[in-house]
């Protein structure tokens, strides 16, 4: 059965009735989700399926602490650790930690060939990129044994930098940066994009909200294991979760009402992002090259 996995934005949302949560450990995570200190992890584990995000890229001087963290996590009742930096895989393997790893390089999990390589290395779960189409997701599913997490709703991160771009700007214009969250806009795009900056650097998040509720049915039909709902800047997250659960229930009872699904979807927004749209780069000049 498909599971709904939530990236909560606060502790209160951990009470939502979903199948799993992804939360980050402070200073080891750059997903836009709830972050906690490792010392407090046990407070959140009761009767919850928790995946821990450690999806930052690490410098050498962070490796020892990272290794110690992995040692701690091995003995916690978590469902798995999401990584981007392959040093996590390397440390887990070198030390033989019993940790379920999930490949979460958010913009590079784009093909079944790469997912299968990780599967062969023992990483049997992956979070697909929010930048690929529904057809690509289904093609991946049909060609891999890996369990997939598919981002299906919310605003996902689209840029990550080790620079402090907002702070630098404020320094340049001689003003104080008083917050971590700002927004950028340009008349060519006519959309505000959240830009978030903390001690880890700068991240930009998609300004519009991906809504794949209608596409969810195909994911259900194709036995996709998890969908990810991202609560960041979403005010009506309860409604979002409920609507997805309603659609799932329809599917499980074999009573899909497309009019109803459409109506539920309209309540949540109408941007599919890349679910039904391919990006452009260059047409192959010669497929035989």
């Amino acid at each position: 059965m498909n599971k709904i996995c939530l990236l909560p934005k606060n502790e209160e949302e951990l009470n939502l009735n979903v199948d799993a949560f992804i939360i980050g450990i402070k200073d080891y995570n750059v997903l836009n989700t709830l972050e906690i200190e490792i010392e407090k992890l046990d407070n959140y584990l009761n009767n919850r399926n928790i995946y821990i995000s450690l999806n930052k890229l690490f410098h050498n001087n962070e490796l020892e602490k990272l290794n110690n963290l992995l040692k701690i996590l091995e003995n916690k009742k978590i469902k798995g650790v999401i990584f981007d930096d392959v040093s996590i895989y390397q440390l887990v393997k070198e030390n033989n930690y019993n940790i379920n790893l999930i490949w979460g390089n958010i913009h590079q999990v784009t093909s079944y060939k790469s997912i299968n390589e990780w599967y062969n290395l023992g990483v049997k779960m992956a979070i697909t990129s929010p930048d690929i189409t529904l057809n690509e997701i289904l093609e991946i599913k049909n060609n891999t044994k890996s369990q997939l997490f598919v981002p299906i709703y919310g605003k996902f991160e689209i840029f990550s930098s080790n620079r402090f771009l907002v702070k630098s700007y404020f320094d340049y214009i001689n003003k104080n940066k008083n917050d971590n969250l700002y927004f950028i806009d340009n008349k060519l795009i006519n959309q505000k994009y959240p830009i978030y900056e903390d001690t880890n650097g700068t991240r930009i998040i998609n300004g519009s909200t991906m809504n794949g509720l209608e596409e969810y049915i195909l994911l259900l039909k194709n036995d996709i294991e998890y969908v990810i709902i991202n609560s960041f800047l979403i005010e009506n997250i309860k409604e979002v979760v409920n609507n997805f659960k309603k659609v799932r229930e329809m599917f499980e009872n074999d009573k899909i009402d497309m009019d109803k699904v459409e109506q539920l979807s309209k309540e949540l927004g109408n941007d599919k992002v890349f679910l039904n749209k391919e990006t452009i780069y260059k047409v192959k000049s010669d497929v035989n090259e």
Binding site: L57, H107, I158, F159, L165
Partner: peptide, 12 residues
Amino acid sequence: VGLSGRCVLSNY
């Protein structure tokens, strides 16, 4: 300016 491979501003 972003981490290589982790910037899809152009895509969006």
